[in-house]
């Protein structure tokens, strides 16, 4: 990861390009592989795209939720604090699988008429809420780590509370929160596999189907594991680079 530290911009760029190339191109080399992998190459590629899609959507939404709920937990307004505390307590105290099933089965019954949620959307919502709760704690810790003098300096210069938050508190707290957020993102790549339970055909589900058709679990699951490893490595590189980028000006 030394190279990542020294060239954060390039590492981020390379990880992004690598991820995209991998997603678009993986069907080609896989197609050349012997059966049972070769014939199912397109399925593997589709599954990987669903997994990455879920991760990116739930990852971004989860960061947004984490920032909002992290702020809410620090609010002076107690009902808001209570709401955010309860949210984190609820999500962290129940299984992710239950949350996914809940969104899939229970949410449609309380949605207004005519609003249809796809299976993918249900999985994305449940994963966002889940990772958001874990992010909340990281963000809160990050905000608390910003020295109060930074806020006073910003306020004394005439910045509004919102500007102070966006320009000073948020970037500085992210520097503290990012390693933990990155951890949550890496877990999300793997946790997204639980979406199989609501018939989202993501990577693990593809593996399950292909081995069921071919009766050859070992090559199939080795391939699936390899694809997950490539994905988590790309995400880890991405976040390590982001961390290095944000680390500038920090005491080492």
């Amino acid at each position: 990861m030394n190279w990542t530290r020294q060239h954060p911009g390039w590492a981020m760029f390379a990880a992004m390009i690598g991820l995209l190339l991998f997603l678009w191109g993986m069907a080609l080399p896989l197609a050349a592989a012997p059966s049972p992998i070769g014939p199912a190459a397109e399925q593997f590629a589709d599954g990987a795209r669903i997994t990455v899609g879920l991760t990116l959507i739930a990852g971004s939404a989860g960061v947004l939720i984490g920032v909002l709920a992290g702020l809410g937990k620090l609010s002076r307004f107690w009902p808001l604090r209570w709401l955010c505390d309860s949210y984190v307590w609820l999500i962290r105290g129940t299984p992710l699988l239950l949350q996914i099933l809940f969104v899939w089965l229970a949410l449609p019954t309380i949605m207004p008429e005519g609003v249809e949620l796809s299976d993918f959307a249900c999985a994305a919502i449940a994963l966002s809420l889940n990772v958001g709760a874990y992010n909340t704690e990281c963000v809160r810790a990050g905000i608390l780590a910003v020295p109060h003098g930074q806020v006073e300096a910003a306020r004394a210069l005439g910045l509004t509370p919102l500007q102070t938050f966006m320009d000073v508190i948020l970037p500085q707290s992210m520097r503290v929160a990012l390693p933990a957020l990155a951890n949550n993102l890496a877990s999300l790549v793997k946790d997204s596999s639980l979406a199989y339970a609501i018939s989202v055909v993501e990577l693990t589900m593809v593996g399950y189907r292909v081995q069921a058709e071919s009766y050859q679990p070992i090559p199939v699951f080795v391939t699936i594991a390899a694809i997950y490893l490539i994905l988590t490595t790309a995400f880890t590189t991405l976040t390590a680079a982001l961390e290095a980028q944000l680390d500038v000006g920090q005491k080492r």
């Binding site: 020295p147 003098g149 006073e152 300096a153 910003a154 500085q172 520097r175 944000l246 000006g249 920090q250």
Partner: peptide, 11 residues
């Protein structure tokens, strides 16, 4: 205002 501990924006 100028503070005892400078309070420059470290990032």
């Amino acid at each position: 205002m100028v503070f005892q501990s400078f309070n420059l924006f470290s990032h």
